[in-house]
């Protein structure tokens, strides 16, 4: 399990000053920590594509913003990827909760998206990593290296309970 405060310290050291997105319960603790942070501000977007717009505008203003969203947002966000972030080659780091990994009778709304999440990312041509366990810093290092080298969107998948 990864502590929210450690992730924020890491991202702050990497010069992220803003975050935006739409919440998921998997990010509850992370969002509480962001609320306490004096280094990283959070903009509560109404939609995930709006969050991409905010992050892209922030980047065009020469500053770095990361995004937080549920994997359902990947379905909302297509045009913001293909005709903005990817088209203009704007680097973006996106934390995506990996809902619907297992059959879930209580939350059937996540099941279909859970099954296609990785296929959707592959179809968009977006590299992704599943972030869990002790080596999370190495995973983020790798993702950020790729993001900066290719000026590309990268996704970090986060399973239930991975971030506390």
């Amino acid at each position: 399990m990864i502590k929210s405060v450690d992730i924020l310290n890491y991202l702050s050291e990497k010069n992220f000053e803003l975050s935006t997105g739409v919440p998921c319960s998997y990010f509850k603790e992370l969002l509480i920590e962001i609320g306490k942070s004096t280094d990283i501000q959070y903009i509560a977007a109404t939609r995930e594509d709006e969050a991409v717009g905010i992050a892209c505008g922030y980047y065009l203003g020469k500053k770095n913003c990361f995004l937080i969203m549920q994997n359902s947002g990947l379905a909302t966000i297509g045009d913001a990827f293909t005709s903005l972030a990817q088209l203009y080659e704007i680097p973006l780091l996106i934390f995506v909760s990996y809902r619907g990994l297992e059959p879930d009778k209580t939350f059937p709304e996540h099941v279909i998206m859970g099954k296609v999440t990785e296929a959707v990312l592959k179809a968009y041509g977006i590299p992704y990593w599943n972030m869990k366990g002790e080596n999370w810093r190495k995973i983020l290092d790798k993702a950020l290296e790729r993001m900066n080298e290719d000026s590309s969107v990268v996704c970090i998948l986060v399973e239930k309970g991975a971030i506390i």
Binding site: L18, T20, Q41, I43, A45, D49, E50, A51, V52, G53, I54, A55, C56, G57, Y58, Y59, L60, G61, K62, K63, C65, D79, A80, T82, S83, L84, L87
Partner: peptide, 19 residues
């Protein structure tokens, strides 16, 4: 903007915060 219909205001918001 070439595409991303609906997003100019949010891009403006991000840009205004950065600059």
């Amino acid at each position: 903007l070439r595409g991303s219909m609906g997003l100019p205001m949010s891009i403006g918001l991000g840009l205004a915060l950065a600059q």
